[in-house]
Write a protein that binds this DNA or RNA. Structure first.
Lengths: 212, 212
DNA sequence: CCTACCGATCGGTAGG
DNA sequence: CCTACCGATCGGTAGG
């Protein structure tokens, strides 16, 4: 990213507009991809939003698909780290405790990386980049399902619900965050993480218990 | 679906190819829209899938957007019916009981109308049809939030969670169904509805007593 | 970083 | 003269 760069074509002298770097273009692109959908967003839309011409974008970026791939990698790297961390904490912690931690850390990642995670959760598999992302995501979901199964095997989860179904619904609730969460101060991430854990593990009904 | 139909233009004599009716084209279109995304699906794709030429489709359908609009209306009509039904049951039923019924009926609608509901949940607002659907959906979400607030005011839900947040998360879990549910016999709708209600209201941790 | 374009494909419609 | 379509192409725009 300094002097010459790998292409020999890196800008040595600055001329004209101050210019954007790749990261700034990526941020704007991901924001547009989420607002309109990836396919409905044209490189012309992105150029207008940036105040550049369409060809100018290709000075910083090789393709529209590359922008998508970088966002998906960001989301997947972060989510993978959450799951891997929990797996490495095996010593001295129950699966239930690790599952609760995964839920909490997942919420933190969803909030901190909401744009790229939102994009990930909407991928349909229309290209090589998308199919690769779907595959990585599927492997993540399998590791989460295994963690839920371990917690159930410990007896920490009620036995009358199939663990794979529980995993789907629990992380379905977590993932639904990206559809409505706004970092506008209404709820901070810890409040949301607590609410999800409370609903999922303890239930909405007041404790002390009664039946309908 | 019988003899003449409401338009007076029902086919009295068949000639040429057997032909598709509007409903069959809509079904195929919605399936494609969900598989590839609305914008990534061309009318040419739809024509190929149906074994027709592209102009032939326009014999039955006025535009691509009309197909989208019909699917979104189907989903919204069904979901509105669920919420309205619950509101009309006010007499003699608590808000908590009605909320549980809404969850159950929502799952049934999501399963029975999965293609159109899936489409609805992915709408971005890129056209007039989409903006209208988003608006109807927002009004539905408000009615659901009001029902959750009523249940909380009754004391049926724990007081330490903000009802608007509970509503988001509860129906986020319900809606996540469309991302993975397959009517392949793995889980029947009643099992899924029970699992969601159990997780949300009673929690995943084993209870001293469980009645439902 | 722009002007000027390309191969292809888009949603939709012409005449027959 | 109708229905159910076809081959071809419209004006614009996509990513590059």
């Amino acid at each position: 990213m300094t002097t010459t760069g790998p292409h020999g074509a890196a800008p040595r002298r600055r001329r004209g507009r101050p210019g954007y770097d790749q990261a700034a273009i990526l941020r704007t692109a991901v924001e547009l991809f989420n607002r309109k959908g990836y396919d409905a967003t044209s490189m012309g839309d992105l150029a207008r939003e940036l105040g550049l011409t369409k060809p100018a974008i290709y000075h910083h970026v090789t393709s529209k698909e590359q922008l998508l791939g970088q966002a998906l990698d960001d989301a997947l790297d972060e989510l993978t780290a959450v799951v891997t961390e929990a797996a490495e904490e095996r010593a001295g912690r129950t699966a239930y405790e690790r599952l609760r931690e995964v839920v909490r850390h997942s919420v933190e990642v969803l909030v901190a990386h909401q744009p790229s995670v939102t994009l990930l959760l909407r991928v349909r598999g229309n290209s090589g980049v998308e199919l690769e992302a779907l595959d990585r995501r599927r492997r993540l979901d399998e590791r989460l399902a295994a963690l839920v199964a371990d917690a159930a095997a410990e007896g920490a989860l009620r036995a009358d619900l199939p663990p794979p179904l529980v995993s789907r619904l629990l992380f379905g609730m977590v993932n639904s965050l990206v559809e409505w969460y706004r970092a506008d101060g209404t709820y901070d991430p810890a409040t949301v993480a607590d609410a999800i854990a409370t609903i999922a593990f303890d239930g909405l009904r007041p404790r002390g218990d009664q039946a309908s």
